[in-house]
Structure formats: C-alpha cells, structure tokens
C-alpha cells in the first residue's frame, strides 16, 4: 500500500511512549503492592524506609517521569478530541504543560529530599 504520511509525525512516537510509560508504571505498581504485602505501609517509618532504598527510589523516579509523560499524552488527546476552537485548545495545552512540568518538579523534590 502506498500511503502518504502527513502531519507533524509525532503520532507514532507518542502512541509508543504512552504504552512504554504505562508498562513502566504497571511494573512499579507491582513492586509497590509487593512492598505493601511485605509491610512497607505498616507505619510511616516503614514507608519512609521502603522509599529510601536506592533501588526503590530509582524505580520511583522512573515512575514519576513516566507518569507525567503519560498524563501529558492522555490529557492532550482529550483536549484534541473535544475542544474544537484552536485558540482555546492551544491555551489548554499550554496550561496543562505548565501544570504538569511544575508538578513533576515538585514530585521529584519530594522524592529526592528524603
């Protein structure tokens, strides 16, 4: 089939990123549930000790990065589907990006300040 590809070509990349970030988050969710079964959430001290482990913190960092990239793609898709006026849609894109970048910084700060 001879197809003419048009557009900005970010569709496939984002489609793939949405799925890769989903898998990263799913794996961390399994690690977290495993930790909970092992008593990581039995007390606040146990919880802090659990997250302070280098391997867990490394995975948690990847989870946070994946989360914010995943949220960006998902929310952008919602705006693209429902908001037809271009100006309003682009404004919402920018506001979403700013909110997510700010919160990503906040999340990383929470994680690394331990």
């Amino acid at each position: 089939m001879n197809r003419i590809v048009v557009g900005a070509h970010y569709g496939l990349r984002d489609w793939l990123a949405q799925r890769v970030t989903a898998v990263v988050m799913a794996l961390f969710t399994v690690i977290l549930v495993g930790g909970m079964i092992g008593g990581a959430t039995s007390s606040l001290d146990a919880w802090r000790g659990f997250i302070a482990q280098p391997v867990i913190r490394f995975c948690a960092f990847l989870f946070i990065l994946s989360l914010f990239y995943h949220v960006w793609i998902g929310i952008r898709d919602i705006w693209m589907d429902y908001i037809k006026p271009t100006g309003l849609r682009l404004t919402l894109h920018v506001l979403t990006l700013l909110a997510l970048i700010g919160q990503a910084g906040w999340a990383v700060q929470i994680l690394w300040r331990l």
Binding site: W47, R48, V71, G74, I75, I78, Q103, A107, I110, R113
Partner: peptide, 25 residues
C-alpha cells in the same frame, strides 16, 4: 478509562501533598 484518567490528573496536586506529608520525617 478516559474518565478515570482525567479524574486522577485533576486530583494529582492533592496526591502529591499526601506523598509529601507521608515522606516528611
């Protein structure tokens, strides 16, 4: 799937607050 994702996005600041409190010694 879409509604739950949007809801989680909207509540994210609150969840980060909880995470911050839970990890603050």
């Amino acid at each position: 799937h879409r509604v739950s994702g949007a809801g989680l996005f909207l509540i994210l600041p609150f969840l980060l607050c909880l995470l911050q409190l839970s990890l603050d010694s």
